[in-house]
Design a protein around this nucleic acid. Structure first.
Length: 227
DNA sequence: GACCAGGCACATC
DNA sequence: GATGTGCATGGT
């Protein structure tokens, strides 16, 4: 896939980025005051609207427990009740606990230490935590730790499938390799690009598409119109 | 009331 | 390996 800068994929992905950036402008993701807050948000936002996640984050902040030590010591039921607005509160409380145990055991509860780790073993470590899958792990790596890892989500895949860039059966890994091979490995670019796909998915490339006015509507044939 | 939202684990075939 | 299901609140 390293040749893709010279093939249609590289051009197409660069073109899409330019069009989306010109349409939506800089996104300045991820909302969050600290890397730890971003990490908690990454787990809480699984299959959940961000507005509901913010309520849960605010709930934790207002009680001054948005830190690894306090959350690690907190009983499950208490944590679940505080993150209730984010939905799936029992399962997410367990997932946060799983991450906090991993975080304490491997990095002494220090985001600085985690950030200093090598990307690949760190990613494998995160994926070994029950409740952290590829998207959540990569969101933590990119947005909390500043690692050049492209985040694939449902919006990204849906848009690329609809515009004929990848087949429906493309896997997470295949999509990620596509971006890694086609784009320079820059944190800021990966950050903006993923956020722009989310904007596209929210406004146009929805489950029931609203193609009129879509910024990708008039791309060349390679990406084409929404299928 | 139906649909959707910045997924993942687990069971079953 | 592919597919189905549970998890759950809150906005549109």
């Amino acid at each position: 896939m390293t040749d893709s800068k010279r093939t249609g994929n590289g051009k197409t992905l660069n073109r899409i980025y330019t069009v989306l950036f010109n349409h939506f402008g800089p996104q300045d993701w991820w909302p969050g005051d600290t890397p730890f807050e971003v990490t908690v948000g990454a787990i809480l936002t699984q299959n959940t609207n961000w507005a509901n996640v913010e309520k849960a984050i605010t709930s934790l902040k207002s009680r001054k427990v948005l830190n690894a030590r306090a959350l690690h010591a907190m009983p499950h039921d208490r944590l679940a009740s505080l993150i209730r607005p984010a939905g799936y509160f029992n399962i997410k409380a367990a997932r946060l606990k799983n991450f906090l145990a991993f975080f304490a055991n491997h990095y002494g509860g220090s985001m600085k230490r985690m950030r200093e780790a090598e990307v690949h073993p760190l990613r494998e470590g995160l994926l070994s935590v029950s409740g952290i899958g590829p998207e959540t792990a990569d969101s933590i790596l990119l947005y909390a730790l500043g690692k050049p890892v492209f985040v694939i989500d449902a919006y990204t895949k849906r848009a690329l499938v609809r515009h004929g860039v990848v087949p429906e059966k493309a896997t997470y890994h295949e999509l990620q390799e596509l971006f890694h091979g086609a784009l320079p490995s820059e944190v800021q670019l990966f950050n903006e690009y993923h956020a722009l796909f989310v904007m596209l998915g929210k406004h146009y490339c929805r489950p029931k598409p609203q193609c009129s006015g879509c910024p990708l509507e008039n791309l060349p044939a390679r990406s084409g119109r929404c299928l």
